[in-house]
Design a protein around this nucleic acid. Structure first.
Length: 675
DNA sequence: TTAGGGTTAG
């Protein structure tokens, strides 16, 4: 039986869910053109357009649209929206230039769409010139267009103009009111938003949801919950907004409860929200577990899912899992935009694979300041100060304007490479040349730079003369410098400030105690210990992680629960016998490590990083690089021990500690013992 | 018209 033309086209259209190549698309096009029923149907043609667009053949869509005898505004609107969604700027500009020609095919809805999208370009001038053109072309300035304009101004950060448009609207529909609520919500003007919301005679789902978001943005999740509970028209957006609100407020339990409750109604965004929420609350392992659940339920992850996951991997130092995700991105052909690209760069930097990070960086078509900053910070963390400066120079050549984070990265890079005078000049230039006022983090960077290099007096002067009140980070940095350079006079001075500012941070007591120990002031060491006990302060236990076959093994010092513990302990004994043959002497300056869990007289005599390294040596083939991530800074003793381990066992060991990377190879470390 | 993503000094 021969199918009728109509059903033939419909059969072809039903194939839209499977990938088509250009030839097949053209075939489909021909079918549609010969089929009088379908060509006038506004339900099938949009499908076709969408599909050909998603197949990355936008030109073909455009060609198709031109070939239609009567393309109506609806189709153009779809076309424009698709073009903007996939950020095909050139098509967008084509459209702009041909606007007069398209005059009869567009409506105010079209302009409304365009105006909103201009905001995503960040182009105020573009939006305003569009606006001028619309008026010039004699389009009716109706509620649809006005709402678009309102939203445009809100998106580019001009609340005044948005309010002006709203005030001048002769009649407002729900959509216009909702847009104004969203605008006020964006600027945190909750009172006005609430006033408008209460006065609205007609409210829809979006109105309620906008109000929920408004409270969530301000961190007032309890008020948001009240609106949520009262809303008679809850949809998945309401749930997602509420879950996100709880996550951002750090209330994971509440978020999880809602997440469980909408089990059947979840969409990709619900999952993404929960995953991002765990990352936000630094529950990286849980984020990864939720992703696995998501996969088990057969949901397709998006670019947003990947960004959160990569961030989790970066924090955990989980390179293998990160590599798997990168492959997944390639396999599923996810679009690597600036955000996803940056997440990859950050992952590779934080996992010690600088080459991979640079590959991603150089392979990106579009880069923004985040990407440049991540690379600069990454190079700095690995001790490549000169290279970080080179990247900065290139960035300037490409006319990318540096921001505050760039200078944090640069100062940090100089600090880790001992480039004192270069750092000094960046610090003075950031204000005079680049117009960026130094923040406390820049002073912190500078204090660290001077302190590490041994310019303690200069560092102290800077702290005393800085325009803002120094915080615990600044004093802490100075204290560590005093410890490293055994300058007790400045050290003791710094300590008072520090314990006053941050009496709950156990790490500070440890450093103070170590400082006293280096002066042989044992009664003061005892005093520190007593102070910690009296104040109930605990030192964060040292914890090192190593990844093996996609599983992250964590070792906390003093914890004997790992199934391989007896073997690891035996292996550590072997190392202890082996190392002295290479003139290794244990460094006893870190005495206070004995006072808490870490170095108690338990079966474990070593710091967590050494257990992790031993575990890595035992469980990986010769020649494989061992990668360890530690939550605290490594101590002198472990540092010199691991240097020797790299020589004796002929292994490259890459260790990330709290603030930088150490590449151990042939008995040497990339930090040149300067950290 | 409403919901989800990236870089930052000890």
């Amino acid at each position: 039986m021969n199918p009728t033309p109509k059903s033939l086209s419909l059969t072809l259209l039903s194939r839209i869910n499977i990938p088509l190549n250009l030839k097949q698309l053209q075939q489909l096009h021909a079918q549609i053109l010969t089929d009088g029923h379908v060509i006038t149907s506004s339900t099938h043609i949009p499908h076709f357009l969408t599909y050909s667009y998603q197949s990355q053949m936008p030109k073909y869509s455009l060609h198709f649209l031109h070939s239609l005898p009567h393309p109506d505004p609806f189709l153009w609107n779809i076309m424009i929206k698709l073009s903007l969604d996939s950020r095909k700027y050139l098509d967008f500009l084509d459209f702009y230039n041909g606007l007069r020609y398209y005059k009869f095919f567009v409506d105010t809805k079209t302009f409304s769409l365009i105006l909103r999208s201009c905001a995503s370009f960040g182009g105020v001038w573009l939006g305003e010139s569009f606006h001028g053109l619309i008026v010039q072309m004699g389009f009716e300035y109706d509620v649809v267009l006005q709402t678009g304009l309102l939203d445009f101004y809100a998106k580019v950060g001009d609340l005044r103009s948005a309010e002006k448009v709203f005030d001048e609207m002769p009649n407002r529909d729900v959509i216009a009111n909702n847009a104004m609520i969203a605008a006020w919500s964006k600027f945190g003007v909750v009172e006005d938003a609430k006033g408008l919301f209460d006065s609205m005679s007609e409210k829809n789902c979006v109105s309620w949801n906008s109000m929920i978001t408004c409270y969530c943005k301000l961190g007032d999740v309890d008020s948001a919950r009240l609106v949520f509970d009262r809303s008679p028209v809850k949809d998945v957006v309401s749930w997602n907004a509420m879950i996100d609100g709880y996550c951002k407020a750090g209330r994971l339990m509440d978020a999880e409860e809602l997440f469980m409750q909408i089990r059947v109604g979840r969409n990709v965004i619900t999952w993404n929200t929960m995953i991002a929420g765990y990352v936000h609350c630094r529950e990286f392992g849980k984020a990864i577990n939720v992703f696995r659940e998501m996969q088990a339920e057969g949901l397709r992850a998006t670019e947003v899912t990947m960004v959160s996951l990569l961030s989790a991997c970066a924090h955990l130092g989980a390179l293998e899992l990160g590599n798997w995700i990168h492959n997944y991105i390639r396999r599923k052909r996810l679009r690597v935009d600036v955000v996803l690209g940056n997440a990859l760069i950050d992952l590779y930097c934080k996992c010690g694979s600088l080459d991979a990070a640079l590959d991603v960086f150089h392979g990106m078509g579009e880069r923004n300041i985040y990407c440049w900053n991540s690379i600069i910070v990454g190079l700095g963390m690995h001790g490549y100060g000169k290279e970080a400066i080179e990247v900065f120079t290139t960035m300037e050549k490409e006319s990318v304007k540096p921001d505050g984070v760039t200078f944090v990265g640069l100062l940090c890079a100089c600090s880790h490479s001992g480039l004192v005078s270069v750092g000094r000049s960046y610090f003075s230039q950031m204000c005079s040349v680049y117009g960026i006022e130094p923040g406390i983090e820049h002073y912190g960077g500078m204090v660290d730079l001077l302190g590490r290099a041994g310019c303690l007096q200069e560092a102290l002067q800077l702290v005393e003369s800085m325009p803002m009140k120094p915080n615990a980070v600044i004093w802490g940095s100075l204290l560590r410098a005093c410890h490293a350079h055994k300058n007790t006079t400045v050290g003791v001075k710094v300590t008072q400030h520090l314990l006053e500012l941050d009496p709950r941070d156990g790490g500070n007591y440890v450093f103070l105690s170590n400082l006293y120990a280096s002066m042989n002031r044992w009664s003061d060491v005892d005093m520190c210990r007593k102070l910690m006990i009296d104040r109930g302060v605990h030192k964060t236990p040292g914890c090192s992680a190593i990844e093996l076959d996609n599983i992250v093994h964590e070792f906390v010092a003093g914890d004997t629960s790992h199934p391989q513990f007896p073997q690891i302990n035996a292996f550590l004994e072997d190392i202890a016998i082996e190392l002295p043959k290479y003139s290794y002497e244990p460094d006893t300056t870190s005495v206070l490590h004995d006072i808490e869990h870490e170095e108690k007289e338990t079966a474990v005599r070593y710091h967590s990083e050494r257990i992790a390294v031993a575990f890595g040596l035992m469980n990986t083939p010769p020649g494989k690089v061992i990668r360890v991530v530690k939550n605290l800074r490594t101590c002198n003793d472990c540092h010199s021990a691991i240097k020797l381990i790299s020589l004796v066992y002929k292994r490259e060991i890459i260790m990330r500690d709290r603030n930088r990377f150490h590449h151990f190879r042939n008995g040497l470390c990339s930090c040149n013992d300067y950290w």
